[in-house]
């Protein structure tokens, strides 16, 4: 994918030089332009599921996820507009309404990327009804907890387990609204044969779905872990 060529593009009117094959998100980041994202994490493959990083590209009526769309020469990208803002707000609203997210009783309160995004975008109420179905909380592991009631299905945990830890203990079962994170053959975490208890999944979880019991979440979380390990390996 990574070519040797260099391309020039404009992001929010700013002239940016990027490598061929690089994504819009990465080019924007280097230029100091912040694009909101939730499922994306440095050091992991791009997923393109949360749709927060959608941007407009001149000449196309479509919206493109910045985390997966490669740059091209002469491209003109807009990362912020009333329309994008409205859509991003809706995405956050929908995520908050999908599960019984109750910040007040959540371990990640104050350390949650979804909560932060809601604040940033001023999502001060939900226009859609909230789902109040209770989902499985797996407390069987000696210190890791999976609370599906808080999971936003960003798949960072899956990807870090597969790509960085190299185990792929986690995956998703079912599909659509029934999608749920599983460990092995939908086993209890405590009886998993493949999990190495490395806790990287808890480190990268943007919300309070996977956490370490009895540990302050601020100590568990480490968004840079994947990138850090990747760079170490390249040494």
């Amino acid at each position: 994918m990574s070519g040797t060529g260099v391309v020039k593009l404009k992001i929010d009117g700013v002239e940016v030089t990027a490598n061929e094959g690089e994504t819009i998100l990465s080019a924007a980041k280097r230029a100091g332009i912040k694009i909101p994202a939730l499922c994306y994490l440095d050091g992991l493959s791009s997923y393109g599921g949360c749709r927060l990083c959608i941007v407009e590209v001149k000449g196309s009526p479509r919206l493109f996820p910045a985390c997966t769309t490669p740059v091209s020469n002469g491209m003109e990208v807009t990362t912020d507009s009333p329309k994008l803002r409205k859509y991003r707000k809706m995405t956050i609203e929908l995520l908050l309404s999908e599960k019984p997210h109750i910040c007040a009783i959540c371990i990640a309160n104050g350390n949650c990327e979804l909560q932060d995004l809601a604040r940033e975008f001023g999502v001060d109420h939900l226009r859609v009804e909230r789902e109040w179905k209770s989902q499985k909380i797996d407390l069987s592991h000696s210190f890791l907890v999976l609370d599906n009631n808080r999971c936003i299905l960003c798949t960072r945990c899956l990807r870090v387990c597969d790509e960085i830890e190299g185990v792929h203990a986690l995956d998703i079962k079912m599909r659509g609204k029934d999608s749920q994170i599983i460990i092995d053959i939908d086993d209890d975490w405590g009886s998993s044969i493949s999990c190495t208890s490395c806790r990287k999944c808890a480190r990268v979880c943007p919300v309070g779905a996977i956490y370490v019991r009895d540990e302050p979440i601020s100590r568990t979380k480490n968004k840079d872990i994947a990138q850090f390990i990747l760079l170490r390996r390249r040494r």
Binding site: H168, D171, M174, D186
Partner: peptide
């Protein structure tokens, strides 16, 4: 099946349940 194909069990379950 997962052990014979050397696939992670969670992957096999994920695919089958999809």
């Amino acid at each position: 099946i997962s052990s014979r194909l050397n696939l992670p069990p969670s992957h096999v379950y994920g695919v089958a349940s999809f």
